[in-house]
Amino acid sequence: MKPPKFSYLAPESVKNAIAMKQELGENARYIAGGQSLVPMMNFRVAAPSALIDLNGLTELSKVSLSSDSALNIGALTRTRRLENDPKITGAHPLLAAAARHIAHAQIRNRGTIGGSIAHADPAAELPGIVLACDAEIELQGPRGFRTVHAVDFFESVFTTALEEGELLLNIKFPRWPKDRKWGFQEVSRREGDYALVGIAAWFDLDATSSISACGLSAIGAADTPVRLTKSEAALLGSVPSLPLFEKAAAEVTADIDPFDDVHASAIYRCEVAAALAIRTLTEAWERDT
């Protein structure tokens, strides 16, 4: 389990990194936390000719609130910081809660939010959160800067809207109202394993206590994280109640398309996704915000 030979480059700026990538071409890879790429290299599943190491680019690990209260998280921000930095946990408690389910502390210390999103494992937590929360993913590439909405970002297993040479700069989460209800639940074989299936949910209530806005997503339930639009439609405009949640959960299977693997069958994932939807919405509803 030793990787084949590769060259190593440490760019000094984003611009520099992109230029290196452009020069080295498709076989070069950006590396951030390396928590997925390095094992793949050791298994020789990935054999990049060169690694462009982003870890020195401090400009990529900034966390800030913009004037519209959107939360900007630099791509190089470590997963561990998502759960611990008060700037993030206060501004986006759902993100912080989901981050705690990712692997183990040692891995969270190295792994980055941008790495997880760019890697696009369909069972990973962070892609599910950006999708549920309508985050904007900011990219910089040889042809300049662009923004991709999370809904358009995840295309298939390990496949995203990132184009050759593009680098994930920043994830922009829209304003998180203080009294927003939210929940996150997943089932995994062991604590820290990839989710067999998981559900993220949030909703806002209007003056009549009806659901005025909501976002639900499922992970481990298809070849990408999935936005549960049919469940959302079932919730919108209604007053939260267990029967309402059950009605919304009944729509989950219409949006997902899970697979069999050695850990669980597609049927398992379907039924547990629906059950978790009820639990997640209940968790959200019972949350004292």
Partner: peptide
Amino acid sequence: FLDHFIYDDDGQLLTGSFADYLLPTSSE
């Protein structure tokens, strides 16, 4: 609960790494 060498019909070992061959950890 966890440890399992699973083979497919062609005799390929499907749980050939610690991502799929699960050992108990302190969390369990």
